[in-house]
Design a protein around this nucleic acid. Structure first.
Length: 232
DNA sequence: ATCCCGAGGG
DNA sequence: CCCTCTGGAT
């Protein structure tokens, strides 16, 4: 589907408005190199970046190279990352991922979606984070829980599947803004448009959002046989 | 579709 | 209590 001109224009207005609201929007996972960002991003699954940043200082002090991450004992690693949740799975992913980096990529973090996606613990979202933020080589848009939620609330897509959301966003925003778009939506999602209680009253883009200012094209159902909803 | 998992908010 | 937090693997 080709997006309408109206949607394209509104998307770019939203982008401009969010840039003004969050001029410092950026990756909030603390890291000093691509390897650290890769590992921090694996840890960030279903967990706030603030909590990841609480464990990475100890982790990065203990593990500097891919070899360090590959050889740290499972139990020692689990203790360090425990509070991020899913700690057994994440510890396995980190160690196996580091082992793959050594075997397949000379201990370096590869710079393509093809090589990153499929490493243990690395799905499309994590690969997009590393490509966009560590290498400035975005091949797509990071779609996490925030980006998906906001894209739907703002009426940029109706898709649920993150890959389909990504496809929709790629068509709406120029490539140079793909990485920034994710940061802006994530910042806005955390500060204003939270999952539980969106603060529409003080929202910077309320007049551009279907919830407040943009009339939704009404999907008109056939008017026959509309039955009262059965109660629970 | 379900599991992995801890912590904080409402 | 229930939901959510920068998901990924089975």
């Amino acid at each position: 589907m080709i997006p309408s001109q109206a949607l394209l224009r509104r998307t770019l207005q939203i982008l401009a408005r969010l840039k003004r609201a969050y001029p410092k929007a950026d990756c909030e996972l603390d890291h000093a190199n691509p390897l650290q960002l890769l590992m921090a991003t694996i840890l960030s699954a279903q967990c706030t970046d603030i909590r990841v940043n609480q464990v990475t200082p100890a982790l990065f002090a203990r593990c500097r190279t891919a070899s360090d991450f590959a050889t740290i004992p499972q139990s020692e690693l689990e203790k360090i990352i425990r509070s991020t949740g899913f700690f057994r799975t994440k510890a396995r992913s980190i160690r196996a991922c580091a082992a793959h980096l050594i075997t397949l990529h000379q201990g370096e973090v590869p710079r393509t979606m093809k090589a990153l996606h499929g490493l243990p613990g690395v799905g499309r979202k994590t690969a997009n984070v590393v490509l966009g933020n560590a290498f400035n080589l975005a091949e797509g848009v990071v779609v996490d829980t925030h980006v998906g939620r906001l894209a739907r609330r703002m009426g940029l897509t109706r898709q649920q599947d993150p890959v389909k959301v990504e496809t929709a966003l790629i068509r709406l925003v120029p490539r140079r803004d793909w990485t920034l778009l994710s940061h802006l939506l994530i910042w806005h999602g955390r500060r204003r448009c939270s999952a539980r209680k969106p603060d529409c009253a003080s929202c910077e883009i309320r007049n551009l959002c279907p919830r407040i200012g943009v009339p939704q094209p009404i999907a008109q159902p056939f008017k026959t046989n509309i039955r009262p909803r059965r109660r629970r």
